[in-house]
Design a protein around this nucleic acid. Structure first.
Lengths: 345, 345
DNA sequence: CTACGATTTTGCAGCGCTGCAAAACAGCAT
DNA sequence: ATGCTGTTTTGCAGCGCTGCAAAATCGTAG
């Protein structure tokens, strides 16, 4: 196991100081063409590659950002993750991943002692178990960008789509189909359920705008937004005296679970019950039926999050906190529109 | 922005040398109870936390391992990722993620210059674009564990299930149902398609064992193992003169795509065509119909991969390369068995 | 030919920690 | 006391790089 090539080795071969080699390697301005070439040649000859650890220690930064999400096997997050990694890498940053399982303690530890660990220079965080209060209590030295679930209190950036408007559109789409017994699956009427509550608000607004009344027994709370929750909630709805003829699900996974229950009970989607989801994950594009959904611009959310974070990391005086809105759109698929190309029988 | 607390600060407060503080912090053996308590008190009082960067530089290791996979939004990988992160963290390691998109150059760069980057101490790698030849050409100083797709050449560990046996079981399951026009979707008859070829081998063995003949026109190649490939391949199969009555798909995603095509053409699964997948991803458990599949023990694959890698990282003389087999089992669901009991009660 | 400002290069210290080997200390036998 | 082991603590160097400021070099004008 031979020793790695260091700056000093290169310097010696090129006949310059190690500091000059550093300048060349880092593309500093004030280096004459002559020396640059000479150094570059030595670098190539020895196959020098900078030691990231040493550089980071000297610079007092880690060159890494952390992406902290509740669940990695949730397609929404894994799709987001891809774009985050791509963007960060393009800017010379590595991405550390952490999954919190929504555990408040785990989440708190991350944002409270974050900057002391020196393992990452900033965090993109999608909280689940922390309420607004706990969030505000984050390490003030830690550059922080929050995704989706909360609104900023002025000490971090926040990026998400307009949940209220999007949910209203989703609900209106169902009402436009003539459905009146419209249910909602995914409310979370407690401190950490802010995003869910915004969706419920949009749901209600759609009814109000048309002078219709929301049936309160059709608003179902679920602890999470996964398939199982959707399946169970749908089963509950179907057992009601007057079951719904349409369902607004707060995530595509919930919608897939709901559809699963509907189909297994012999009901037709959308004929008997129309279903709309939220997130536009790939699963929903290939499911049976495919899922009508609210599609947030994930690519933009990811790249914006990274860029804002790097901006924060780069500035000595923290930039003012911003509240960013990513665009969204309604994508109509079979679960509300029916088969576009009708089946044989 | 105050300066961070260092070892020296603690040492001063405790009235000992900084080296002793280091010993206490790292739990070294030869420290008297007296000093340990004194130091610990100082640590607590100042809220000292070690600087990981400095420690790593001094130790010449990074405390991080890399997980390199072709696609992060493939549920199989994101499910694996979770277990890898959990295991690594328990052993004090962080996980860096990288997605290669199956790009051979990207993959090569990782294993060829890996150890020079000093960003990670070892790599768990699921190759896609590299053939056996290119794999052998990895940096010999880089601790490496390969997942799934290849067999070891003696310079790295390899972990995967027995693809041939599993595929044979899957095919036998279809034959047991009385199906005879059994198709296979996912063959990759080229150097980088080793795993696919092993599955095709198992497929053939199942026929041979019963004295049946494989219909060559029912073996379909696909570039990847995703939904789209499955959907297209299925469409092609249905356009044949004598279409199949059962399909063995080389991944659950392929199966989901295939089912999608079947259903949209008005065919019933499994009545008209039975479908079996591979990987046991969560999507297949909630789809309509749910997908019969080969379930590899992902948890074991992940934890074993991490442990083997850490073992390699820890040993000065590289341990002998091992070829590890994780168990698998057949999970029968609706896509072959039909509706058994209405789930999601 | 000298002086002076601008540009390029260099030397050194130090980021915060650990490896190493020496030093200090303690316990016990002589 | 003295010597001898074994344990605990310490000092120092250095991981490989960059920040800083001084030094060297260059170009131009006087």
């Amino acid at each position: 196991m031979r020793r790695e090539v260091t700056l000093r080795d290169v310097a010696e071969l090129a006949g310059v100081s190690s500091r000059t080699v550093s300048n060349v390697v880092n593309g500093y301005a004030n280096v004459t063409e002559r020396t640059r070439v000479r150094v570059q040649r030595a670098v190539d000859e020895l196959g020098y590659r900078p030691n990231v650890l040493a550089r980071n220690l000297a610079q007092g930064r880690s060159g890494q950002i952390a992406l902290v999400v509740p669940y990695l096997d949730t397609p929404y997050f894994s799709e987001l993750l891809q774009s985050v990694i791509r963007t960060a890498r393009a800017r010379g940053y590595n991405v550390l991943i952490d999954q919190t399982d929504g555990d408040p303690e785990h989440e708190r530890a991350f944002i409270a002692h974050g900057s002391r660990r020196l393992l990452f220079d900033g965090v993109i965080f999608s909280p689940l178990g922390l309420d607004q209060q706990a969030l505000a209590d984050h390490d003030p030295n830690l550059p922080l960008v929050i995704l989706g679930e909360r609104t900023s209190d002025g000490t971090f950036d926040h990026i998400g789509i307009d949940d209220v408007a999007a949910s209203r559109e989703a609900t209106e789409h169902l009402l436009d189909l003539g459905r009146r017994r419209v249910a909602a699956i995914g409310d979370q009427p407690y401190a950490t359920g802010e995003a869910a509550q915004r969706r419920t608000r949009g749901f209600r607004e759609a009814f109000q705008a048309r002078g219709l009344t929301v049936r309160e027994d059709l608003i179902i709370s679920t602890p999470r937004f996964n398939r199982k929750d959707g399946a169970q909630a749908m089963a509950h709805l179907l057992d009601l005296e007057d079951p719904p003829d349409a369902v607004f699900c707060y995530s595509d996974l919930v919608a897939l679970g709901a559809i699963r229950t509907l189909v297994s009970r012999g009901l037709r989607v959308p004929d008997d019950v129309a279903v709309i989801g939220y997130d536009d994950i790939e699963d929903g594009r290939y499911s049976n039926p495919s899922v009508t959904t609210i599609s947030p611009d994930k690519e933009m959310i990811a790249t914006t999050a990274v860029e804002r974070l790097l901006l924060r990391i780069g500035s000595s005086t923290p930039p003012p906190a911003v509240e960013l809105r990513a665009p969204h759109r309604l994508i109509v698929r079979e679960s509300t529109a029916g088969r576009v190309t009708p089946p044989a029988r």
